[in-house]
Simulated scan of single mutants.
Amino acid sequence: MAEPDYVYIPEAELEGFVTRIFTASGCTPHEAARISNHLVGANLSGHDSHGVVRVPRYVEWQKAGYVLAGQTVDTITDGGSFVLLDGKFGFGQTVAQQATELGIERALQNGACIVGLRNAGHIGRTGDYAEMATAQGLISIHFVNVAGSVLVAPFGGTERRFSTAPFCVGVPLPQGPVILDFATSFVAEGKVLVASNGGKALPENALITAEGQMSGDPHTLYGDYAPVGPRNAAGGTGAIRAFGDHKGSGLALMCELLAGALTGGGCSGPITERARIANGMLSIYLSPQHFGDEAAFHQAAQGYISWVKSCRAADPEAPILAPGDPEKQRRAKRRITGLPLSRDAWQGILDTAASLGINGPQGI
C-alpha cells in the first residue's frame, strides 16, 4: 500500500472549521464547539480514528435522525451514589459529558459514584471523559459498548459478535494523569475508516475474512467503496479481530454485559430491527481523598510508575512509557506541525461542508 498523502492543518483552524460545519448542520454554537473540540482533541492526541474523520458520518447520522442535537440526559434511576441516565440519542460528546459531570459531582461529594449511560450517540474518545475526572482529582473506570453494532469476531471465530467495546481507566497524579484507553478490538473501527481513506495502513492481521484468513484490507470490513465517500460496515463479510486473543475477547464480552445489558441500552447483537446504533457506558468514579490517604497514594503510585519506566528498554530509542505518555508527546508535536489528515479524508470533510454551504479554510 502506498504511503499516506497528508495535508497538515493547524489545530485552531481545523476546530473553527468543524464548529462551523456542526452549527450549519443544526447544532447550537455551544454544542458545535464541544463536538469540534472533542474530535480535534482526538486528532491532537494521535487518535485519528476518533477525530475529524468522523465528521461526514456524524452529519450523515444527524440528517437521517439517528443522532439528535440539543439533548439533555434523562434520569432513569437515582440512588445518590449510583445513577442511570438515558442519552435520548443525543450527540455523544454532549450527553456523555453531562453524565461525566454528574459522576464527578457526586464522587466529589460522597467519595464514589457509579453512572450508567444508555442511548448515547457516538461518544468519541473515551479518554476525554477520564481526563475530565482526573482533572478533578478522581479515578475513573469506563466500560463502553455500541448497541446494534457488530464488528468484531470473538477469539477463534470468523463471524461478528462484539462491538469494538472500549475500556478506559484514568488515575490522577501530581506529575500528570495516567490514562489507559483502548478498544478491545485489535484496532478501532475508526482506524479501518482512516485506512480506507488513504491513511495509515492496518496491520496484516487486524481483520479476519469470512473464510478465516487474516487481512489488513479495509474492504474486508466495508466491501466495495469509492475513494471518497461513506463507508458501511454492513457491506463487508469479514470482521475485526479481538486484541490479545482470549483476553481481549473476554474483556469485550464484559463491556457488552456492563455497558449494554446492565444499562438497558442493549448489547451489540443479536441484530434486530434497529434503525441506529448507540453507545452505552458504565462509569465508576472514585475519590482517593475519601478512600484513604491521598498523599500516600500519590507517593506510592508515582514511585511505582517511575520504577516501571526505569526498566532498561530493548530498543534504546524507544524508552518505556506509561499509558497517556504517547498522547502527551503527540500533542506537543502536532501543535507545532499541524494535524495530519489524509487527502481523501480531508476531501470527504470538505464535501460535507460544501453540502451545508460552508467553504473550507483558505490556502489548504
Rank of each mutant, 00 (worst) to 15 (best):
Q136Y: 12
R106A: 02
V146F: 10
I349Q: 10
L138W: 07
P227W: 08
G216V: 01
S287H: 07
L202C: 01
L258D: 08
L341M: 11
G265S: 04
D181H: 12
G198N: 05
S81M: 14
P218F: 02
C27Q: 09
A195K: 05
P319W: 04
P172F: 12
I35C: 03
A345H: 00
Q109C: 03
Q362S: 14
V171H: 01
G280W: 02
E189T: 13
K247G: 15
V52I: 09
Q213M: 09
G265E: 04
I305F: 14
G248V: 12
A135T: 12
F167G: 11
G124K: 04
V308C: 14
N359F: 15
V52Y: 03
I141R: 10
S268Q: 03
V187L: 03
F155W: 15
F143G: 03
G250I: 15
V146G: 10
Q175I: 12
S355C: 11
S25E: 08
S268Y: 05
A314D: 09
L44W: 04
L202S: 05
R330V: 11
P319D: 01
L193S: 14
I305E: 05
G260S: 00
A96V: 02
R312K: 14
G41E: 08
P230Q: 02
T72I: 13
I277D: 14
T94W: 06
G348A: 13
G260N: 11
V115N: 04
P154R: 12
A322V: 10
G303H: 05
A153D: 06
G127A: 06
Q347N: 14
G248H: 13
L221R: 06
K333W: 03
L356C: 02
P174S: 15
A332Q: 02
A42C: 09
D351I: 12
P316I: 00
Y6G: 01
F182N: 10
A135V: 13
L321Y: 00
G280Y: 00
R241K: 15
F297L: 03
G170F: 13
Q289T: 15
I271R: 14
G303C: 03
C113T: 08
S268V: 06
A188R: 04
P227Q: 06
N359Y: 02
K200C: 01
L262R: 00
E273H: 08
D344Y: 12
P10F: 00
R343H: 00
A295Q: 14
R57T: 10
R335W: 12
Y66L: 13
T77S: 09
A147N: 05
R312F: 02
T209C: 06
T77Q: 07
G229W: 03
A2V: 04
D86C: 06
I284R: 05
V52E: 01
A188H: 01
E317T: 11
L85S: 02
S81E: 11
I35H: 04
V73N: 12
N110G: 15
L102P: 00
G121Q: 06
A295Y: 09
S45N: 14
F17M: 01
V169N: 10
M281C: 10
G199N: 07
R331E: 14
A153C: 08
A69T: 02
P56S: 03
E159N: 11
F291L: 15
A345K: 05
A295S: 15
G265H: 03
